[in-house]
């Protein structure tokens, strides 16, 4: 476990550094600077602005300053939203995204695991075929198709749920559609992985041993099979976070949720360097952090790795 984790931990700063550097140079070496879009800005003001944001300095210096700020967790002022720093914007927008993501993860885990395990245990049953077809739909039909369709049916035609808006953690009604939309592909993946894991495990010799002891099906499945069946699901949870993050770009847009995803898309089109950088770094840290967490969790679930 020690060696295995160490390798993972060493990867963290490397991944972050590559990400940050790639983002930095992508943003700086692009045709069209941040102040080229506003036609009105006169050259003097522009120069002043560029000086303020260090854009007049040589690139290595800019890069150095940028890394230094980053180490101090200072993401700088927003280029476009002159009154706020990127830290402030993130602080203001992150909660909505986090709440949405959290609900989505919970929904996905409950639906995905439930359906996957039952489908695996009852292979070739009607439930198996049914849930796997639904899962395939979840995988194949993109979030941005599902979202508007759900909004159309439940929001507009049936009028049961609001189609857009956000009222904080308590405005559950507002979160139902977006959270389901975000969760669906994720739940589908989990269901398929859990089912496949279950099928693989259920034919293992040690499961036969468990049956031979006279244990009930419930115990065989929950105590003996579930753990092994969960492993592929657990290793998927890392990449899943990336999926949820990208998914939120679209879902926040569709359902008008004031989250980081929307900020990122807007920042990217406005060339708000610091904001984009800040969000990408945030996403990167989240992703890397979750991957690490998942690795640790995996180790705990599988004793063979724990002691390796």
């Amino acid at each position: 476990m020690g060696r295995y984790l160490l390798r993972r931990v060493i990867q963290v700063p490397i991944v972050l550094w590559i990400l940050v550097t790639a983002t930095f140079f992508l943003m700086r070496y692009t045709p069209g600077g941040p102040f080229d879009m506003d036609k009105q800005v006169d050259p003097a003001v522009k120069a002043q602005m560029e000086a303020k944001y260090n854009l007049d300095k040589p690139m290595p210096v800019q890069y150095g300053l940028f890394l230094w700020d980053l180490v101090r967790l200072d993401l700088g002022p927003s280029f476009k939203n002159k009154t706020m720093t990127v830290n402030e914007i993130i602080a203001a927008k992150a909660p909505a995204s986090a709440v949405l993501g959290l609900y989505a993860v919970v929904i996905a885990l409950v639906l995905g695991l439930g359906a996957g395990v039952v489908a695996g245990v009852r292979q070739n049953s009607v439930f198996d075929y049914g849930s796997m077809t639904v899962a395939m739909v979840g995988l194949a039909v993109p979030t941005f198709v599902v979202g508007p369709l759900l909004a159309l049916v439940f929001g507009i035609y049936l009028g049961w749920l609001p189609v857009a808006g956000y009222e904080g953690m308590d405005g559950l009604r507002y979160l139902v559609l977006p959270a389901f939309t975000l969760a669906l592909p994720f739940a589908a993946r989990i269901a398929r992985l859990a089912r496949a894991g279950m099928l693989e495990v259920i034919h293992q010799d040690y499961i036969r041993t468990a049956w031979a002891k006279g244990l009930s099906e419930q115990v065989v499945v929950l105590r003996h099979a579930l753990r092994g069946a969960m492993l592929p699901v657990v290793s998927f949870l890392g990449p899943a976070v990336a999926q949820i993050l990208t998914g939120s770009l679209v879902v926040e847009q569709i359902f008008g949720i004031p989250g980081i995803g929307r900020e990122f898309v807007q920042g990217a089109t406005n060339r708000d360097y610091t904001l984009v950088m800040g969000t990408v770094i945030l996403f990167g840290v989240l992703l890397v952090g979750f991957n690490l967490l998942v690795d640790i969790l995996y180790g705990f679930l599988d004793p063979r790795i724990r002691y390796a």
Binding site: D205, Y206, W211, A212, K213, G214, G228, D302, P303, R304
Partner: peptide
């Protein structure tokens, strides 16, 4: 289930895979 394990027990061929690794 009462017979299995309680009255009639079974040992399998491969001890490497017949015990639950978890």
């Amino acid at each position: 289930r009462r017979v299995r394990g309680g009255k009639v027990a079974m040992i399998f061929q491969d001890p490497m895979t017949s015990l639950n690794p978890f």
